[in-house]
Design a binder for these strands. Structure first.
Lengths: 111, 111
DNA sequence: AGCCTACATGTAGACTGCCTACATGAGAAA
DNA sequence: TTTCTCATGTAGGCAGTCTACATGTAGGCT
């Protein structure tokens, strides 16, 4: 998986993983790996800054927790985050449709 | 169309437009606009450097022509470019599949 | 005790590609 | 002569992802 290809779609992935339950960063990385069949194995240097960015943007909120002696920062979707996720999903659909139509144009009978 | 979303997929679009006939930059911009229903309206500052990059990479070759007193640099696919296009197409398919599976996971019955 | 692995978070700086803004010039039409 | 379309190109900015590093706990193995 090329790094550039991901550009601009990571936010949608993160929000999507957090849709049904709050997660901490490390678990999010594992969830992405699981859901993608091992293809998406994103480094911490990508995930943690991205989560903070999404929190600054108001799409996520976080709380510290300690589980088994280890500190976790648990993120959850805000209302704005939920709306953003919906927007990202529809943006993804139209994005794939547009690129697809250029990459594999269905030849119209010419006028 | 968000600029970041395009990142890493532009090469595939350009090669695809040039697949069946050579084109010059300005015409490529118009072709992308047409094929995408007006959504992809890419600036010259994006297209021209990208075409030169693809030529440096060996995927395109270019020749100057003069049509109606105007100079055009016409690009065509090389053999390597054709192979690259095939690779980009299959990469696009797996890319959409992976992102899609994260964004809209089909819930497996849990074990 | 010492070592290694998994768990867990974070930052600094590099890389790179797409964008904005600008520059240039010919032909055609108003 | 002014403006629009056609046509190419560069310089510099921006921003997101990555590499590499830094820190620390828990638990298993020898």
């Amino acid at each position: 998986m090329n790094a550039d290809a991901l550009r601009g779609h990571l936010d949608a992935l993160l929000l999507s993983v957090l849709e049904h339950e709050p997660q901490h960063g490390y678990a999010i990385i594992e969830a992405l790996r699981d859901r993608s069949g091992g293809v998406l194995d994103l480094p911490t240097g990508t995930i943690y800054p991205a989560l903070r960015r999404l929190e600054r943007a108001g799409y996520l909120a976080s709380e510290w927790a300690t589980v088994g002696g280890r500190r976790r920062r648990t993120y959850r979707l805000t209302g704005a985050g939920r709306a953003e996720l919906a927007g990202e999903r529809s943006a993804w659909t139209s994005f794939t449709s547009v690129i697809g139509s250029v990459l594999n144009p269905s030849r119209e009978p010419s006028s």
